[in-house]
C-alpha cells in the first residue's frame, strides 16, 4: 500500500513536469503546424540561462523568470529571422528540417560557449527530501509540480478568458477562418511560438537542478513530450495535460510493478492504441472543416 501511494505521488509529480514541455510543443503545433524539433534545445537554454543568471548573483527563484525572458528573447530573434520566413504555411515537412537545424545550432552554440560537461544548476531546494508519513518527496520536485500546475492553470485560464487566448485557439482550429475574422494571424502565430518556447525554457529552468544542465538535456524529455502530445491529440492543450498525467502515472506504475526496461515502450504502446481506437487523440477533435 505504501509502495502504491509513493508510486502514485511519483507519477503525479512526473506528469506535471511532462505537461509543461508538452503544452509548449502542442501550442506551437496547433497554431503553426510546426513540429518543433528545437523544443529540447530551448529546454536546455532555459536551464543554462538559469545557471548563468545565478552565477551572476541572482537567487534561483528570481533567475527562473529572467531565464524564461532570455529564452523568449532568443526565441523571438529566431522566429523573426528564420521561422517566420521559412515555415509558416509550409506544412510539417519543411518544419522538421528547419527546426532540427535550429536545434543543432543551439546545441553547438552551448558546447562552444559553456562546454559539453554537465553543470549543476543550484537550487535552494537542493537535494532536500521531505519525508511525510514515510513517503519521500524531493523538495525540488514538489516545487516543479507546484510551479507547473500554477503556470498551466494560469495559461489555461488566460486562453479561456482573454480575447488573445481565444484567438490562439481560433487560429489553431481554423487559420483561414481566423483570417476572415480580422485576426492578425501572423501575430498570433508569433505569440504562440513565443509562448511555446517560453514554456520549454521554463521547464528547463525548473528541471535543471534535477537533471543538471548539459547540451542535449532536452532530448529525452522532448521524446516523452511527443508521446504525450500525440496521446492527448495534436494541438489540443487540454489533451496535452491529460496525456502528461496518463504517461506520468502510467510510467511510474509500470516501472514499479511491471518492468523497468519496457517502460519507455509503454508510452508508444498507449499512443498506438489511442491512434487505432481514437485517431484524433484523447482530447483532439475529429477534423471537421479542413479543406
Amino acid at each position: 500500500m505504501d509502495l502504491l501511494i509513493q508510486t502514485l505521488i511519483n507519477g503525479l509529480i512526473l506528469g506535471a513536469g511532462y505537461a509543461l514541455v508538452a503544452v509548449g510543443l502542442t501550442v506551437i503545433f496547433g497554431t503553426l503546424h510546426i513540429v518543433n524539433f528545437a523544443h529540447g534545445a530551448f529546454f536546455a537554454l532555459g536551464a543554462y540561462a538559469t545557471l548563468l543568471i545565478e552565477r551572476a548573483g541572482a537567487p534561483y527563484l528570481l533567475a527562473i523568470p529572467l531565464a524564461v525572458l532570455c529564452v523568449a528573447a532568443i526565441g523571438f530573434a529566431l522566429e523573426a529571422t528564420i521561422v517566420r520566413r521559412a515555415l509558416y504555411d509550409q506544412g510539417e515537412h519543411g518544419s522538421i528540417i528547419v527546426t532540427f537545424a535550429i536545434s543543432q545550432a543551439i546545441v553547438a552554440a552551448i558546447i562552444l560557449v559553456v562546454g559539453p560537461d554537465p553543470l549543476p544548476v543550484p537550487s535552494p531546494f537542493g537535494q532536500t527530501a521531505v519525508s511525510v508519513g514515510g513517503f519521500f518527496l524531493s523538495a525540488q520536485r514538489i516545487f516543479i509540480a507546484a510551479a507547473s500546475v500554477a503556470v498551466l492553470a494560469g495559461f489555461a485560464l488566460w486562453l479561456r478568458r482573454s480575447v488573445k487566448g481565444q484567438q490562439i485557439l481560433a487560429v489553431s482550429q481554423n487559420a483561414r477562418g481566423a483570417l476572415y475574422s480580422g485576426i492578425n494571424v501572423p501575430l498570433i502565430r508569433s505569440l504562440s511560438f513565443l509562448l511555446g518556447i517560453a514554456a520549454a525554457g521554463l521547464a528547463g529552468a525548473l528541471m535543471g537542478p534535477m537533471i543538471s544542465a548539459f547540451p542535449t538535456m532536452g532530448d529525452a524529455n522532448v521524446i516523452v513530450a511527443f508521446t504525450v502530445v500525440i496521446l492527448g491529440g495534436l494541438g489540443s492543450i487540454g489533451g496535452a495535460m491529460l496525456g502528461a498525467l496518463v504517461i506520468g502515472l502510467g510510467n511510474a506504475l509500470f516501472e514499479t510493478y511491471v518492468s523497468v526496461s519496457w517502460t519507455p515502450a509503454l508510452g508508444w504502446v498507449l499512443v498506438i492504441l489511442v491512434l487505432l481506437l481514437r485517431p484524433q487523440g484523447l482530447m483532439g477533435r475529429a477534423q471537421l472543416d479542413r479543406h
Binding site: A170, Q173, G177, Y180, S181, G182, R285, D289, H291
Partner: peptide
C-alpha cells in the same frame, strides 16, 4: 477589417471546437 471591411466567407470557416459564444466574442 479594422477599416470596416468584414468578410463572411464561402464555407463559413467558423471555429468548430469553440462555442457559439466564443466564436462571437473573439472578434476584437
Amino acid at each position: 477589417a479594422r477599416l470596416g471591411v468584414s468578410h463572411v466567407p464561402e464555407g463559413r470557416e467558423i471555429f468548430p471546437g469553440m462555442t457559439v459564444e466564443a466564436n462571437l466574442r473573439l472578434i476584437d
